[in-house]
């Protein structure tokens, strides 16, 4: 009898322990879970990460510090930051955002790929304000400030240290004379059509016009706007929006018997009278072929 009671007591103790454990877990996971503060940008929701990338690209457009932009992108924990930038640019275009909004992302993707800034750092004039110099004062003393609704989509992995990198790059002067100087075209030099190949491949979409844009070093260039016009319309697109096919790649599907004019917006290159070529398969059946247009900066 006594041993049964003792056994029951032990069971009661075990039962109480389990009830307590369950109650503790329920409280700590459901009622009062750990509250996160000091989160890392890598934990952000996907739309906030998008916003973060937009702001990184916008800041880079103002201050082309590539190392800093890269470090900021790394905070987001993307496996391939360049691919993410390109994919986001595509999503934004598909969502109807303007080219101007997408361009900084494409430019940053291009610069990260090529490893240097397309546009050198230029001093930007600070705006002149009529108001007195700003002071870091308490908001209570300021004019009631508006609360803004966040409408842009975007943004920032745990416990990685974040280091500020210098905003301006270190310039190391060297006195080593250069024996020769070869002038090269700048990043904004016009693109010239250097290749126009007919592509007869029945496995490809009919009338596919592919573009490849290269800089003077034959590196593919993303973010170059191309305008295709024909008698009934116009289409605009950028290179680099299909990074899996190359950062300087873009394409457009032509209709048979339609004449197209091509304009590369950067540099103003213009190629008129482009038509889809006719091809014949091994069985003698005619079909609409494609074109590969290669543009390069001098």
């Amino acid at each position: 009898m006594i041993s049964r009671l003792a056994r029951n007591t032990n069971l009661h103790i075990l039962f109480a322990l389990l009830i307590g454990l369950g109650a503790g877990l329920w409280y700590s996971w459901r009622i009062s879970p750990v509250t996160y503060v000091d989160a890392n940008p890598a934990l952000l929701r996907a739309d906030f990460k998008d916003q973060y990338r937009i702001v990184i690209a916008a800041a880079y457009a103002a201050n082309p510090d590539l190392a800093r932009a890269r470090e900021r992108l790394n905070l987001l924990g993307d496996a391939d930051p360049v691919a993410e930038l390109s994919a986001q640019a595509q999503r934004m275009l598909a969502a109807g955002d303007s080219f101007e909004q997408v361009r900084p992302l494409a430019n940053l993707a291009t610069d990260l790929t090529q490893g240097f800034a397309s546009n050198p750092i230029a001093p930007t004039p600070f705006p002149t304000f009529n108001t007195p110099a700003a002071q870091a004062t308490s908001a209570a003393s300021e004019t009631p400030a508006p609360v803004i609704e966040a409408t842009e989509t975007n943004l920032p992995q745990p416990t990685t240290s974040f280091e500020q990198t210098p905003l301006t790059p270190l310039i190391i002067e060297t006195v080593t004379p250069r024996p020769t100087f070869t002038p090269t075209a700048g990043p904004g030099a016009p693109f010239a059509l250097v290749g126009q190949e007919t592509v007869c491949d029945p496995s490809e979409p009919a009338g596919l016009m592919r573009f490849k844009l290269l800089d003077s070093r034959r590196n593919e260039k993303a973010g170059i706007e191309i305008v295709v016009t024909w008698d009934q319309g116009e289409d605009r697109f950028f290179t680099g929006l299909k990074p899996e096919l190359g950062h300087g790649y873009a394409d457009f599907v032509m209709q048979a018997d339609t004449t197209y004019n091509i304009r590369v917006v950067t540099g103003g290159s213009f190629v008129p009278n482009i038509v889809a070529p006719g091809c014949t398969d091994p069985n003698g059946v005619a079909y609409t072929g494609g074109l590969l247009l290669t543009f390069q900066q001098p």
Binding site: G24, L25, A39
Partner: peptide, 22 residues
Amino acid sequence: GITLGLAYGWIIEPVEYTDVPP
């Protein structure tokens, strides 16, 4: 039991947040 539950839920295996706001 309660103490062990709280320790486990708050320290050992706390709720993991993803998709946090900025």
